[in-house]
Amino acid sequence: MLAAVVLLVAAEGPVMTVTAPDSEYDIGYAELVAGDARGAIEAIENCDKLPESDPARQINHAVALARVGDYEEARDRFAAAARNADRLELQTSTGDWVDSKVLARRGLAMLDSGDFRGYEALAVR
Rank of each mutant, 00 (worst) to 15 (best):
D26S: 11
D112R: 06
L122Y: 03
L88P: 07
A56W: 06
E24Y: 13
R75S: 06
G28T: 08
M16Y: 03
G118R: 11
L122H: 08
A37P: 10
A20K: 00
S23H: 11
G28M: 13
L122S: 09
A11P: 07
A30C: 10
A121D: 13
V124K: 09
G35N: 06
D36F: 08
R105M: 08
A121E: 14
K49C: 00
V9T: 06
C47W: 03
V98R: 08
E24S: 14
S93P: 04
R38Y: 04
D115M: 04
D99L: 08
L88N: 05
F116T: 01
A62S: 03
A37E: 05
V124Y: 10
T17Q: 12
A80N: 05
R83A: 05
A109E: 15
C47V: 07
L65H: 10
D26F: 09
P55Y: 02
R125A: 05
E45A: 01
D115P: 02
A10D: 15
F116W: 14
E45S: 01
A56D: 04
M16H: 08
L2V: 13
A123F: 13
C47I: 02
L8K: 08
Q91P: 03
F116L: 11
Y25N: 03
L88Q: 11
V15S: 11
E52S: 12
G118N: 14
D76P: 04
P21V: 13
L65P: 05
Y29P: 00
A11T: 10
A43C: 02
C47F: 02
D48C: 00
R75M: 08
R87E: 15
A34K: 12
Q91T: 14
A43Y: 00
L111Y: 07
S93V: 07
V98S: 02
S53N: 12
N60T: 13
V33H: 00
L122P: 03
G28C: 10
A80R: 08
V6G: 09
N46L: 02
A43F: 04
L50K: 11
E52Y: 11
R105L: 10
R67I: 02
M110L: 05
L50V: 13
D22A: 15
L2F: 14
A85V: 12
N46E: 08
E72N: 12
L50Y: 04
V124S: 13
A3M: 15
R117M: 01
L50F: 01
A123H: 10
R38S: 10
R87C: 09
P55Q: 01
E73D: 12
I27M: 15
D36R: 10
G69W: 12
N46T: 06
L32R: 07
D96S: 07
L8A: 02
G69V: 07
V102A: 05
V63W: 11
A79P: 00
V15K: 11
L88V: 09
E42T: 15
V5R: 09
V33Q: 01
V33I: 01
S113H: 06
L32M: 08
R105I: 01
T17V: 03
E120L: 05
D26W: 09
V33C: 00
R38L: 06
